[in-house]
């Protein structure tokens, strides 16, 4: 049953300093709404996993508060944790256990009554039904990853954390996992994923958060972010390379690429450009394009721009 709170997760003033003195999280404030697919992006060691582990009760916060579905994770840990499912980054499984037993075990841990029908449904959704009696050690890496997702789903969580779900997974399986995540989201499950594959976030997330050196730099609706920070480029591939941009074209934000064989016009959605006008100026300058195409900056370009800033 989905409990009645707008925010799936609310984090306020969260800090985490490990015993070594490493400051992993620095005053994190974040709200994740119910039903969202939220992608948490950041380079290695940025604090993504620490943040997830703090929410799930694996890491003890140094200060700050976290509520999950309206429940405080310290004082109301039972209710809070009951709503959470976690797929950790590492493939940590009980190698000698069967797929069926390990998923049933996970369901029991969260206090749910036995439900062979539900476990069957989860295994079928994860395409693991034919492997249900197999020992986990005999499965491929991709299948083990799906077992971990099945374990996390075994107790019907409202909120699912996927920490690097595509690590070590081939393209085909990655795409099938994306489809499964989308279908989970359609059932009302809130998804929070961390990933190195920015393409994954671009493909799936509604909202994006960027974390670097323990600080949450930005949270934004994905499309708004692409619109605000993304750049479009119109590329004119030239028949004859040029060494300098003619004076007639100095009014436009043009650059030369590939030893003068390409003229690139940068603009964004807000700019009021008239491409035909640019073409007229090119013609009058004696520059003849061989080809014209446009390209758009990806979430990855924006991510690099943010992290390197």
């Amino acid at each position: 049953m989905i409990s009645d709170h707008t925010n799936a997760i609310a984090i306020a003033g969260l800090n985490k300093t490990y015993e070594t003195g490493f400051h992993a999280l620095d005053n994190i404030n974040l709200e994740i709404k119910r039903g969202e697919i939220f992608a948490l992006l950041g380079p290695n060691g940025a604090g993504k996993t620490t943040l997830i582990n703090a929410v799930c009760g694996i890491v003890r916060p140094t200060s700050g508060t976290i509520t999950v579905a309206g429940y405080d994770i310290i004082t109301q840990y039972r209710q809070a944790r009951s709503t959470l499912g976690l797929v950790p980054q590492e493939l940590t499984t009980d190698a000698f256990e069967s797929v069926w037993n390990t998923v049933t075990f996970s369901r029991g841990l969260f206090g749910k009554p036995r439900s062979p029908a539900y476990v069957e449904d989860v295994l079928k959704r994860m395409s693991l039904w034919d492997k249900k009696d197999e020992q986990i050690r005999r499965l491929s890496g991709g299948m083990k990853r799906r077992v971990m997702i099945a374990k996390a789903l075994s107790h019907e969580p409202e909120i699912l954390f996927l920490d690097e779900p595509s690590a070590g997974v081939d393209v085909e399986l990655r795409k099938s996992m994306w489809a499964q995540v989308r279908s989970l989201s359609e059932t009302g499950v809130t998804i929070i994923l961390t990933t190195h594959y920015i393409e994954e976030a671009q493909e799936m997330a509604n909202r994006v958060g960027v974390i670097n050196k323990g600080k949450l730099i930005l949270t934004e609706d994905k499309n708004t972010l692409l619109r605000k920070m993304g750049k479009r480029h119109m590329v004119f591939a030239l028949r004859d390379p040029v060494s300098v941009i003619p004076m007639e074209l100095s009014a436009y934000p043009l650059t030369l690429e590939d030893d003068g064989s390409k003229l690139v016009l940068a603009y964004n959605d807000q700019d009021d450009n008239d491409i035909s006008e640019v073409l007229d100026h090119l013609k009058s300058s004696g520059i003849r394009p061989r080809d014209i195409y446009s390209r758009q900056s990806s979430l990855e370009d924006i991510f690099i721009q943010l992290v390197e800033a």
């Binding site: 799930c56 940590t92 841990l109």
Partner: peptide
Amino acid sequence: YEILSAPL
């Protein structure tokens, strides 16, 4: 991780 994140 599973034991620590369970409501136990």
